[in-house]
């Protein structure tokens, strides 16, 4: 029989699943605006933010929600080979199987032949990994208005992606995702646990413990998941070694949060 700690630990496994999407006020409004933007006649939509702010989850969620009613294609991992990229798009969107090398000119011919009642939406995750040349081709493709692109990018300090030439002139909608605030993080954690019926674990997160978690993770969802996974792993270990009486279970003590942070490398000890 698995303990509540083991169950709680599994809640925070780092996997992107639309079912695990947690509705938060701010996130919901952003999600709604993204949905609205897709309906608009835009060429490109840029979704950007620091790693772990939920961009991939957003794309997954939107793909899950819109796929029953709309032609929408999600590419979670970048297709770095140019020919492969065109071939995948030709097959998925235009139902054209192509053997051998497919260059941009040939692909554009396929695109021009096909007409859609509703513009298909292509969701490209981790678009910062695409080459400059391929990004330029994607821009040209979006100019035909045959395909609409929603791309996600990491916002890095070194390069301001918004300033990139091919985004400056063509992107009509940019949406930035940010880290959670302390109160949002509390809701996120508790909602996630309650979804998995871990009510006792959810009640262990007081404002004080969530503030400590927020201090360590800066509200980053990925880091929070990582930290809480280790935290419940620690609880499970204490339970297994019959030392649970040594630690508090009515609320999460800072000691355990910090131990989890040390183990995950969020605290440099």
């Amino acid at each position: 029989m698995s303990s509540i700690f083991v169950n709680s630990k599994d809640v925070f496994l780092d996997i992107v699943n639309a079912k695990d999407y947690v509705q938060l006020d701010r996130v919901s409004s952003i999600y709604q605006s993204l949905k609205d933007s897709i309906k608009k006649p835009l060429k490109m939509i840029l979704l950007y933010g620091k790693p772990g702010t939920g961009k991939s989850m957003f794309l997954n969620k939107i793909h899950t929600d819109l796929s029953p009613t709309q032609s929408i294609y999600l590419y979670k991992t970048p297709i770095l080979d140019e020919s492969e990229f065109y071939k995948v798009l030709a097959q998925d969107i235009f139902a054209t199987r192509y053997n051998g090398e497919l260059n941009f000119t040939q692909f554009m011919k396929i695109v021009e032949k096909k007409e859609f009642k509703e513009t298909p939406v292509v969701l490209l995750d981790e678009a910062q990994l695409y080459s400059e040349v391929l990004m330029e081709k994607i821009r040209l493709l979006s100019d035909t208005r045959t395909v609409k692109f929603v791309i996600t990018l990491h916002k890095t300090e070194k390069e301001d992606i918004i300033a990139k030439e091919h985004f400056q002139t063509r992107i009509w909608e940019t949406i930035e995702l940010e880290n959670a605030s302390s109160s949002e993080l509390k809701i996120y954690i508790q909602k996630k646990l309650m979804k998995a019926n871990c009510f006792d674990s959810a009640n262990m997160f007081t404002n004080k413990s969530v503030n400590r978690i927020h201090n360590i993770t800066n509200g980053n969802y990925r880091d929070t998941n990582k930290l809480l996974y280790t935290l419940f792993d620690l609880y499970a270990l204490y339970e297994k070694s019959s030392r649970l009486s040594n630690i508090r279970t009515d609320h999460v003590p800072n000691k355990l949060i910090e131990m989890a942070a040390i183990h995950t490398g969020l605290i440099n000890a």
């Binding site: 620690l234 270990l237 204490y238 070694s241 030392r243 000691k255 910090e258 131990m259 040390i262 183990h263 000890a269």
Partner: peptide
Amino acid sequence: LHELEQRW
């Protein structure tokens, strides 16, 4: 656990 407690 022991090592982690020491580090903490």
